[in-house]
Each structure stands twice: as structure tokens, then as C-alpha cells.
């Protein structure tokens, strides 16, 4: 087996972003705490959520559990809305990923619930390369908010990221742990 460094980008095409890299958190309790601290979080849903299954459930179901656990508004990108409609959930907003990032960059933006721009943005279900580039935009041009990722890869351009996770079981436990702890927070 190759060495899977927990805090180097999994897909090496994204390697070496520079001087500021994400804080790696493995503990779901700690992750949930960071989310719960936010006043106006936003969960941005990518199209990979519709393709990947984890423990027999589609990834998007985990994402929606997270949203529900703490009443976090959602943004459906690409064609994620279609799957949400199928699951009987209405997204709080529909923007494509570059559009929502473009809006988030603007500190004056009112956010998807019109309560003010978000202070924590959770990304879940994007190609790692596009995700990294999007996170880089916010890292450089949106100092007013923090970013976090839920995928099983380390995203250096985020503020908080999970490590590279080889075993799906471990990832599943983390995601379920986040949901459980969010409910308690």
C-alpha cells in the first residue's frame, strides 16, 4: 500500500497551494462544534453527492441529514436540485458553484435567507479540482467567511478540512458523528 499522507491533497494535481492551508480535523465532535459556532452557515451541495453511495445510502442523504440537524440552509449546484426534488426536499437556493462563490465573495450579499452573508460555508460533493479552485477564491477574496469541506479528501484551500480517508467506513462514522453531535449542540 502506498503512503496516504493525511494532510497532503489526495489528488496530487492539487498539490502545494502555498502558505496558508486548512486546519485538519478528524474528530466529528470538534467538526460539529465548529459548525455550531457559526451564526449563518450554508451547505453547498455538489453533483458528486448524487453519484456516490456510502453504507448503502446516497451521499446526498448524509448531506441532507447534516442540513436538517442544525437547520442549515442549502444551495443546490449543477443539477442537484433534481435529486432533491426526488427526495421531497426543496433546496433553499439554486446557484451553480461559480455563481454561489461569486455571491459569497461579496460581504454585502444578503445570503440565501436574506439574513446577511454567511459566516461558514460547507462544501460537499464537488470534483476535487473544481472544489479546490472554488475554495481558493474564498480563501483569497472572502476574508469575511470561513470554509469547510465534508468530502473524504484533504482540501488545503479550505479553512477546515477532513483528512484523506481511505476507508469508507471511517468516513461514514465521521459524517454520522457530525450529524449526532450537531443535534446535541
Amino acid at each position: 500500500m502506498s503512503q496516504l499522507a493525511p494532510s497532503l491533497p489526495f489528488h496530487r494535481v492539487n498539490i502545494l497551494t502555498g502558505t496558508r492551508t486548512a486546519r485538519l480535523i478528524e474528530d466529528p465532535v470538534e467538526y460539529a462544534k465548529q459548525i455550531a459556532k457559526a451564526e449563518r452557515p450554508l451547505l453547498v451541495l455538489g453533483p458528486r453527492l448524487m453519484k456516490i453511495t456510502l453504507g448503502g445510502r446516497l451521499l446526498i442523504e448524509y448531506a441532507l441529514d447534516i442540513a436538517k440537524a442544525k437547520n442549515i440552509p442549502t444551495c443546490a449546484t449543477a443539477t442537484v436540485k433534481s435529486k432533491m426534488v426526488e427526495l421531497g426536499v426543496k433546496p433553499d437556493s439554486v446557484y451553480d458553484v461559480v455563481e454561489i462563490i461569486n455571491a459569497l465573495k461579496d460581504p454585502e450579499w444578503k445570503g440565501v435567507r436574506k439574513e446577511g452573508n454567511h459566516d461558514l460555508v460547507l462544501f460537499f460533493g464537488f470534483r476535487t479540482d473544481l472544489g479546490e479552485q472554488g475554495l481558493s477564491v474564498l480563501k483569497h477574496f472572502a476574508p469575511h467567511l470561513k470554509t469547510m469541506t465534508m468530502c473524504k479528501y484533504y482540501y488545503p484551500h479550505a479553512d477546515f478540512s477532513l483528512p484523506n480517508i481511505r476507508k469508507d467506513e471511517q468516513w461514514k462514522n465521521i459524517l454520522e458523528g457530525i450529524v449526532e453531535n450537531l443535534k446535541k449542540e
Partner: peptide, 23 residues
Amino acid sequence: PFYAPFCDLCCFCTYGKCDLTED
């Protein structure tokens, strides 16, 4: 223009690498 930097740094000349994060 909507910029998505690949890297935090510039290494175009011998003054650098220069860190361009956080303003």
C-alpha cells in the same frame, strides 16, 4: 473578472517568492 488562484505565491522574479495571501 472572477479569480481562482492556483497558488498563494508569485515566483516570477528574484525578489520572490512573494506571499500574496491576506491582502
